[in-house]
Design a protein around this nucleic acid. Sequence first.
DNA 1: CCGATTGGTTGTGGGCGTACAATCGTTGTA
DNA 2: TACAACGATTGTACGCCCACAACCAATCGG
Lengths: 143, 143
Amino acid sequence: MSEQDPATSAWTSMRRLVLELHDRRGVVSDAIGMSYLRAKALSRLTARPLSQRELSATLMTDAPYTSVIVDDLEQRGLVRREVNPADRRSKLVRITTSGRAVARKAHRIQSAPPPALAELSAPELAALEATLRRLVESAEDTP
Amino acid sequence: MSEQDPATSAWTSMRRLVLELHDRRGVVSDAIGMSYLRAKALSRLTARPLSQRELSATLMTDAPYTSVIVDDLEQRGLVRREVNPADRRSKLVRITTSGRAVARKAHRIQSAPPPALAELSAPELAALEATLRRLVESAEDTP
DNA sequence: CCGATTGGTTGTGGGCGTACAATCGTTGTA
DNA sequence: TACAACGATTGTACGCCCACAACCAATCGG
């Protein structure tokens, strides 16, 4: 358990940072007064409106619960449901102006790195950033 | 949102890897047939027995729910409650042999890095590992 | 020694997320 | 045109986690 190859060690450190030492999920929920999943839904809608089917897919939730989430966000005035003109069965969920404000607030909190990360030397930080960027790209391709 | 300083970008990549692209929490729960929090409890007990008070502290749970978790683990035969000889109020929770087996299984799943990470070049991996190790150490000191 | 504190237990209520069944309106297809 | 498939909604039931109240036994402090 103590001696590990570098890949496992690096991965464990990453998990420890994200899940324990600098977990922001509770902070986000408290700050915006709604669950982390709702915040996540909101952030997925900033780029473009999504049908609830698409929202289900990115959130990994089933259709019924997605409906509940959108209900909640709609009642808070953070999104609007619009009938999809191309398919009147489906509804496009569009984020509102106040929804964007909440999404920005959540994003600001989530994306704030732990202090130690911001204090790395410029070269070391650049190397870390480059490596992680490539890791994300690879992982996105092989899910 | 797209242009970020390197620290924020690195942090976002880390979060994305751990929370989305290679999230192992659900996998662990499914594999061992119990909640992630119970798996976490079990892993904290591998080093040494803990009082429920200590367990509460590391799990960030209150005393009543900690009692429920230990109940569950005890009924599964994964831990044993022992009266603390030094303070008969407190109970030491000691992991059993079968508990260790489950903990090992969970640990193996959790600590398996994403394939892309294992495929980095040796020097790049070493640099990544060293940086992350220092980040964890710093973050542990300033919570 | 007595009151306060501590560690643990039991029970309650609630929020959140998951899974499933049943239904409705719309769309695609034979 | 009839039938199957699809998107969404409503409702139910459950598991997990959190928070709080109330209590017991043991220990500590004056």
